[in-house]
Amino acid sequence: MNVLIEKEIFDSVKNKDEKLELQFLLHIIWYNQRYTLLLNENVFSCVVIQEMSDIDKELLNLCFQQTIVSDVKADCIISERGVYIQDEKIFSRTEAIKYLLQPLSIIVENSLNDAHFINAIMRSYDSSQSFFKHASEGWVQFENAGGCGNVLNFLMARIKYFNNAPKFLRCYVLIDGDQRFPSDLVTKYDKLILNLNKWNVKYHRLEKRCMENYLPIHAIPKNNNTRDWINAYEHLTPIQRDYINISNGFWGDLNKEQKSKIEKECKKRKKRDKRNILLRNSIHKEIRNLYFDVSDTNFGYLALGIKIRDFKIKFPEYFNDTTNVYHKSLQEIVIHQSNPDELEDIKNDILSLI
C-alpha cells in the first residue's frame, strides 16, 4: 500500500511526544517493507527532520527521490485535515497509526473455505509473492462474515468500533455472483454494494455463479462417485459451466413447492425415471434455454450435483492442487468472460491494500 505523508505533518510536530509519534508512524511504514512511503514535497527543511537519525534521513530522502520520479498513486494520505474527514482514506498522524497497524481483512462468506480460492489467485497471479509475505507476518487475515446476508452487519459493527468513521475500514470484500444464467437479476447485494461504494471499501462481485465455478476441471478428483458428473461437466460449454450449480445441480435451482410437486408426480406415476424429465421442464425458462443442448443422459448426471461428501469443506481444498491449479489453467477458466482479466483485477486490488 502506498502511503503519502504531506509536508504539514512534519511541520506540525511541536514537542517530544509528537516527535515520537511521527517516528513510530514512519517505522510502522518501513518495518520489514510493510508499506511504501510517498513524499511529494521536500520536507528536509522541517525542524523535526533535522533532529532525526542519519538512517531515518537517508530513508526519507530515498522515498522522496523515488516519489518524484515515479507515477504511483497514494492509497491513503496522512494530513492535518484528516481529523475532519470520515469516509475518504485521509488520516491525521494519530489516526494513521491506528489505521496502518490493522491487518488487511479479506471478508468472505466463509473464511475457512473461501480462503483457498483467494490463495490460489495470489499464488498464481502475484509473481512477487508479497501477499504471502504479508500473510506470514500476520498483516492479512480472512474474516468470516457468516454468510452473504451478514457482510453488511459485520462492516457496520466495525464502523461502530471506530467511532462511526468508515475510513478506518481496512477491508476487501469478495462476494459470489449468484446468477443462475447470464441475464439473471440478483438484487440481494444491492444495499451492501451501495454502502461499500459510500465507504470507499474495495470489493469484487464474481462474474461466475460462485467460487467453485472457477476451479479447473482437472483439479476435481475422478472416482466412482464423481466420474459421470465430471464427464458430463466436461461436455458443457464454458458459459454453461459458469452458471451450473455444482453442489446441488438443477435440483438445487428449484424452490420447495416445485420439488414437492415433482416428488408427488413421481410417486403417483411410480416411475422415478421420469424425475429428470419433470425437473427439466420445471426449472426456470432461462436455465432450460442455457442448457438446451445438454443430452438427457448428461442432464441426469448433473441434476443433483457432484457427489462429494462435505462438499463445502472438501471442494474448495481442490484449489490447493498446484499441479492443476496455476496461472494458465485459471486463465483458461476466465478467458471467455466479459472481463477476462477478472482474477488479475482481484489480485491487483488486494495488493493495493497490503
Results as ranks from 00 to 15, higher is better:
109 E>S: 03
72 V>C: 09
112 L>A: 14
75 D>F: 09
91 F>C: 09
124 S>Q: 01
120 A>P: 14
119 N>P: 01
75 D>H: 14
108 V>S: 00
126 D>K: 06
103 P>T: 09
117 F>Y: 06
113 N>Q: 11
123 R>M: 13
116 H>M: 03
125 Y>H: 12
94 T>R: 13
106 I>G: 03
88 E>M: 08
115 A>Q: 10
114 D>N: 01
72 V>F: 02
74 A>N: 06
90 I>Q: 11
106 I>F: 01
106 I>E: 02
101 L>E: 15
113 N>C: 12
131 F>R: 07
74 A>T: 01
134 H>Y: 12
124 S>I: 03
110 N>K: 03
109 E>W: 02
92 S>D: 04
104 L>C: 08
98 K>H: 12
114 D>Y: 01
85 I>A: 06
120 A>K: 03
127 S>E: 15
107 I>L: 00
132 F>D: 10
73 K>I: 09
114 D>K: 02
111 S>H: 03
115 A>R: 04
103 P>H: 06
81 R>K: 15
101 L>A: 07
100 L>Q: 08
112 L>Y: 03
130 S>P: 00
89 K>I: 08
84 Y>V: 08
84 Y>K: 15
82 G>Y: 05
121 I>N: 11
123 R>Q: 11
73 K>Y: 09
121 I>E: 13
88 E>R: 13
107 I>Q: 05
104 L>Q: 10
127 S>F: 11
89 K>H: 12
108 V>L: 02
72 V>Q: 15
135 A>R: 11
100 L>R: 07
125 Y>R: 08
119 N>R: 14
92 S>H: 04
103 P>G: 06
107 I>E: 01
124 S>T: 04
86 Q>M: 04
106 I>L: 02
